[in-house]
Design a protein around this nucleic acid. Structure first.
Length: 712
DNA sequence: TGGAGCCGACTTTTT
DNA sequence: GTCGGCTCCA
């Protein structure tokens, strides 16, 4: 480490205000930075990283935990610009850091070296499998919860670290009659994951905590860091608090940043209570509050403050703007979502003509399909955009197929992947796939391999730590290998599908022996391509999507964990995988509010601000849920630097994509109270130009329209 | 009779 | 894109 920089060289400290500087240069003891929207939270945190490094803390001994990897990357880039020495700071999400640690200690945790990480969809598939096995498949009468609900419930219970019965009573009362069956199902779920050699996202946190609490491994882990900085602390859950406390308990200095009024992840068991409890969890905490808003103009803040003031238990916190001037936010009533799309597109173009490029503008919405019509309109007008949130690249069916193949090449015991992969073959459905997998799994090798098998079995049972030590890593590698049993299993495949299935399995065997991830991915892409082309009408386009993944596999730094890293840091779109990104291109951002967290734009448009969306009808149950929905609107509003527009389509479709014409006549969001509207310019857009002032439709005429004359 | 495949109804927010 | 229900095929 270079000599400590003199204070006069740290000119970047001069750019901070008094509170920010106090936070950035705090030394000794835990620190909590309460930072309202736009108060320079990121700047302060980056500067703190830079300051710590300039104070002589080795950068690899600093851990920066953020909500997304994108946030970590951005912060580290900025810190590096201040102090080049900060390049080795370890940054990422709780989950990605957990993955590194779990990887390193896989054998202690009883995991095979090639263990996979299930994404939410895979985890739900495992639960579904167990649900069917337990006979809750199509049980008549009292309906058993579906896989999505089960996963929600499971994840909530684990992340909140609360008893299942309590979580059911509070959030899922309608499944109470099945409580015991669900409890048994969840126990089976943890067993099954072990058998499959996989873990889910929640396990990553559980396992990190288990490592941190272990009397031997824990201190060793904690001694790797001097400082931990945690961003967005208002959105941590109980498990993450445990991790923070474990780190702090071993003498690591903890800094947390957040704003209780921006807590929007209650549905993931996060709770703003944790940030308020921080001082009691960490003895001797210094609290620094940042109140000066450098992002928005006062008129925007006035409206946002008016929304915040409605909260039942709000901290009295009024943001004050540092930027002079500004225009009042607009609230626009329109006929319907079509009019909304046209209006937003026009305003975006208008702003661009006035010198604001598309990158400085964003459209935000509650749910990802709120922008469906807008996306069509933008295509029509050739306005480039990138959409964040909603259905992601990895969730597209053909990409999931490909990922399942990649998984199988790493871990032949992953039956969920098998189940998906086998069904790619035409004429091979779920029933045959299940049978074949049962045969592959059930056919235990005979005596000669008993010793190896003993290792695998002990892994499956999840032995005590000492027994696992004994088994050693070499034996743990002996996960049951389905591929070897294919010859037996293929007998239950319908005859017409057998040859095709053989081909697929043969390709997997070849791919498994190929260690270079790029070459392996290429081989698997080649077997998959014809199947994708046959299955989907737009198959050719989808195969191109796969090429992006192959390219990414070629870039992978750690072949073994290419798929896991994909799950932990999912590309938002296929364009995200393309190397290098087209940085010079100008595009509009469309994003769910959840995905827009921490970001800002000059011009912000908020779509569909009607009641039923803000709050969403599904989240209008308890007053806590409604508070969270209000904060969501607040977060959206405070993303705006210069102008803010909120749209209320009066007539909206219940269902997206125009499947039918079911629609309702909505009211504006209940959060747009008179106080809020008083801070805004309210306009009503003229009605349908083809039918001004609702002129009655002529019904008496009968016209005949037919192309029959053409059919001579 | 089981299983593959087609058709119609519906979809909150994310690591 | 997914789920459940239905029909037709071996």
């Amino acid at each position: 480490m270079a000599a400590v920089a003199g204070t006069n060289e740290r000119h970047w400290l001069d750019e901070l205000n008094e509170q920010q500087r106090a936070a950035a240069t705090h030394r000794g003891g835990p620190l909590l930075i309460l930072a309202g929207a736009g108060t320079g939270k990121t700047t302060t945190l980056c500067t703190r990283v830079a300051w710590l490094v300039s104070e002589g803390i080795p950068s690899e001994r600093i851990l920066l935990l953020t909500f997304t990897r994108r946030a970590a990357r951005e912060m580290l880039q900025r810190a590096r610009a201040l102090v080049p020495g900060s390049s080795r700071v370890l940054g990422g999400t709780f989950h990605s850091v957990a993955h590194r640690l779990v990887r390193r200690h896989a054998s202690a945790l009883g995991l095979p070296p090639g263990f996979g990480v299930l994404d939410a969809g895979d985890a739900a598939d495992v639960l579904d499998l167990l649900r069917v096995e337990a006979g809750h498949g199509s049980a008549r009468g009292s309906r058993f919860p579906k896989k999505g609900t089960l996963l929600d419930l499971y994840s909530r219970t684990v992340n909140a670290q609360a008893p299942l019965s309590g979580v059911i009573a509070e959030h899922f009362p309608w499944v109470d009659e099945h409580r015991e069956a669900i409890s048994a199902l969840f126990r089976e779920y943890t067993v099954r994951k072990r058998e499959l050699g996989v873990i889910d996202l929640d396990d990553l946190l559980l396992m990190w905590r288990a490592l941190a609490r272990d009397e031997v491994i824990g201190p060793r882990l904690a001694s790797s860091f001097d400082h931990v900085l945690i961003d967005e602390y208002q959105d941590v859950n109980g498990l993450q608090v445990d991790l923070a406390r474990a780190l702090g308990g071993y003498g690591c200095e903890v800094t947390a940043v957040g704003d209780d009024f921006q807590a929007i992840y209650g549905f993931r068991s996060a709770s703003a209570a944790h940030i308020l409890d921080f001082p009691s969890h960490f003895e001797g905490t210094r609290v620094v509050t940042l109140e000066h808003n450098y992002r928005s103009t006062q008129p925007v803040l006035d409206a946002a403050n008016a929304v915040a003031a409605q909260a039942s238990r709000a901290f009295p916190k009024r943001l004050r703007a540092d930027r002079p001037g500004g225009v009042r936010p607009r609230v626009v009533w329109l006929r319907d979502e079509g009019a909304q799309a046209e209006e937003v597109a026009s305003r975006v173009l208008e702003a661009r003509e006035n010198g604001s490029d598309l990158r400085s503008q964003a459209v935000l919405m509650r749910t990802s399909h709120d922008s469906d019509l807008l996306e069509l309109e933008l295509h029509r007008r050739r306005i480039p955009f990138v959409k964040y949130g909603g259905l992601k690249y990895l969730e597209a069916a053909h990409v999931k197929d490909f990922v399942a193949l990649l998984r199988l090449a790493d871990n032949g015991a992953d039956d969920i992947a098998w189940f998906r992969v086998l069904q790619l073959v035409e004429g091979l459905g779920p029933a045959s796939a299940r049978k074949a997998i049962g045969l592959m799994a059930g056919a235990e090798p005979a005596d000669p391999e008993a010793e190896l098998e003993e290792g695998a079995a002990s892994f499956r049972r999840g032995l005590s730590a000492s027994a696992r030590e004994e088994a050693g890593e070499g034996r743990l590698a002996a996960v049951p290998d389905r591929l070897a049993e294919w010859y037996t299993a293929r007998q239950v495949i319908p005859e017409r599908a057998r040859a095709s299935a053989d081909e697929l399995v043969a390709a997997l065997i070849v791919a498994r022996d190929e260690q270079r991830p790029g070459v392996r991915a290429e081989a698997l892409r080649d077997v998959l391509a014809p199947l994708v082309k046959a299955r989907y009408p737009d198959g050719a386009v989808r195969v191109e999507d796969l090429d992006q993944l192959v390219a990414a596999a070629h870039q992978a730094n750690d072949p073994r964990h290419f798929v896991a890293e994909l799950v932990l840091d999912p590309p938002q779109s296929s364009a995200d995988l393309a190397q290098p990104p087209h940085l010079d291109e100008d595009y509009l951002t469309i994003s769910t509010i959840h995905s827009a967290k921490g970001l800002e734009w000059d011009h912000v448009h908020v779509l569909a601000v009607y009641d039923g969306n803000f709050p969403a009808c599904m989240s209008a149950g308890t007053s806590e849920q409604i508070d969270e929905e209000r904060r969501l609107l607040y977060v959206a509003m405070t993303r705006a630097r210069r102008t803010l527009s909120m749209y209320v389509p009066v007539r909206y479709h219940h269902r997206p994509r125009g499947i039918d014409d079911a629609h309702g006549y909505g009211k504006a969001s209940r959060f747009l109270t008179d106080e809020v509207l008083g801070c805004c310019d309210v306009t009503r857009l003229p009605d349908d130009p083809l039918n001004p002032r609702g002129a009655p439709v002529v019904t008496a005429r009968r016209l005949s329209v037919s192309p029959d004359a053409l059919f001579d």
